[in-house]
Design a protein around this nucleic acid. Structure first.
Lengths: 206, 206, 206, 206
DNA sequence: GTATAAACGAGACGGTACGTCCAGTCTTGGA
DNA sequence: TCCAAGACTGGACGTACCGTCTCGTTTATAC
């Protein structure tokens, strides 16, 4: 990830270690306290950093938590498992594994809730978290087209709509299963989801 | 809905009007301020009620907001539109319309986020909000079976799993579309969702 | 002294004990820390009172310190020592004794310094502290006139000017001796001051 | 005035202009903000100087303000006005004129207040400000003795006591008049003060 | 004329207090 | 017994300065 903060030519440079410590402390505080009881004072203490340092780098709790949670999703990959269904199952399982971690559970829904009233925050979430996952969807589809599992897409607009729908269905289903229904998104469940999704897309494309 | 609070034998009875006023004030505060900036003091002022009265009836902000939001979902119905697909589209559109209202957008995600760390709250949400919708899924399936669109279900456990999956897919997709992707769940989108879902279920059931 | 704060018809009444505790804590903090290092947070802790309680009753540090110091001067009296010179010496020694106490030393000069830029504070000091002492000057002169040590005053304006001059000379000399020159205003010094003052006034009146 | 800071053999020498700019900026900040709201950061900005430079030269706010205010008193002189009374009136009026300036009003009392708890600061004030004025008292008395207005002093200890008393009475009265009573120390008032003082000293010396 | 040593500007750092706000409790008088 | 009002303790908020520190840069003298 490129540097989060603009460089300054002069003056004492910002401590890079502080960023790391703050984000780690934020995640740990999410685990220990949850979003609503997390305070920036507490994060500062945990990170061994002054409160001012924290406010110098982030505008507030929401921005901080977005960045802290976003790092969790950096580990998502799309290994080639040989088929579209297997690829999807693989990445969904990874996604579910992240959502099962308490720092993600507590933080993600809360910032999404906050974002319902804050366009800038919504944009930050989309940029930091959502769009990165959408690239996985696109990559998966491309790979499937190369394999011949999906026909090459010609209609760009229609293609974009399909990606959006798939993305909302996959991410939404997993999030709802994990965070609302509070059930594990295990292999069996993911397998069912994938089957319904792929069958439906295939049938609906005809 | 049955009375929220246990009756007391003696003394001045609680004002029923206060409950109504408080919940309405809560929803309005959600619209004006969002969940995180909503304060019980403010709700008390809006409702023309003392803070004491409010604390006498609800344990805290989360419980109050759950009750206030839950009332929004009482209006969901499942009118017979003649086909399973049409029935689903109808109820999903109703659901999406509720989620488009700011008092629901702000409140619902926030309490779900809070619930990730609070079993009692999770239970309250499930009881007050989620299970009521799940009955719509079951009713829709039953009606479709009566129409012959779906085969009668024989395996109870498998049936429950299917209902859960459908429910997570429908609710999750709509929530994600509305609150995360921040796009309207309009007729066209709902139509696409329904088609993929039903095709997929039909294909996957074979 | 009349009540410092306006009464409210309704709601929980303010704790009278808190006022006492806060003013005593303020004086102790002046002793321990001095004016510039005295913080309202610290006073609140010492008084066993929440910071909000303190801010509810005083506008800020200056107002609080003025009230805390003013109470010190309530104990000034003008016992009849038989002659004008003895009366003056008596009250000046009392005044010097108060100024020798660290809570007065630290606080009084500091609020006077602050008052150079704050008309309201200046008025509060004059009302709470200065005018009370001026009455001692007037009482002393009246008693001396009754004794025949001073001629009855006929010219009101001239009289006022004389009182002001005496007051500035007495108070100013003692304060300067005590706080700037940092020497004790002991009996010998006060005796010298009184002799110069009375001789001068007598000679100058001719 | 001798150099405030020790010279260093090697390296870049300290900017002399910076000292001047800092002290002037301090006085202006005293005028604009008063002592308690004056911050060293602000002074640094006003002086066009980095905070480091300021801290390299002064230990803190008190020391800086003492030096800034002390410069104001360099302009006090004792021109020969022909008589002791006239000489005293002249210097007292000069003194009062300085005290009427806001940078002196705000700063002087505040550092005196601070000095009640700081022996080193007290000494710095005495050395930088007070003793310089005391020399005026001594010079005036010497001149009066040469004129024959005062008898030659023989008893050294008694003489010192008298100087101290006069000094405290003059300086204290003017300061109290100006800063506490908040009245102008104009010619009329100074005339009255001088008459009482000289008559009293003459009578008391007999 | 080039090293070198200190001062310089800029600004981040860990702290501390600010004055405000809200949570949740308690105390009054009145319905 | 409930109610409205409002004071209570407690604690986080986000801001402002403190006095220190770490940079890269400038500037006189000493070699």
């Amino acid at each position: 990830m490129q540097s989060r903060h603009p460089a300054s030519r002069t003056g004492r440079p910002r401590s890079a270690a502080a960023d790391t410590a703050i984000l780690a402390a934020t995640r740990q505080a999410l685990v220990d306290l949850g979003w609503s009881k997390l305070t920036l004072s507490d994060v500062a203490v945990r990170a061994g950093v002054a409160k001012t340092t924290l406010y110098r780098r982030w505008a507030g709790k929401n921005e901080l938590v977005v960045d802290a949670v976003a790092e969790l999703f950096d580990e998502l990959t799309l290994p080639d498992r040989g088929s579209l269904a297997a690829d999807i199952e693989g990445v969904v399982l990874q996604f579910a594994a992240i959502l099962a971690r308490p720092e993600a559970r507590s933080g993600l829904m809360a910032v999404v809730a906050e974002a319902t009233r804050d366009e800038a925050l919504r944009e930050r979430i989309r940029a930091s978290i959502v769009d990165r996952q959408k690239r996985l969807v696109i990559a998966g589809r491309t790979r499937a087209q190369e394999r011949g599992e999906l026909p090459p897409e010609t209609d760009a607009e229609r293609s974009a709509r399909a990606v959006d729908l798939i993305f909302d269905m996959v991410a939404g289903s997993v999030v709802h299963r994990t965070l609302v229904s509070n059930q594990p998104a295990d292999e069996e469940w993911v397998h069912g989801l994938t089957r319904v999704l792929l069958s439906g897309l295939a049938a609906s494309a005809r």
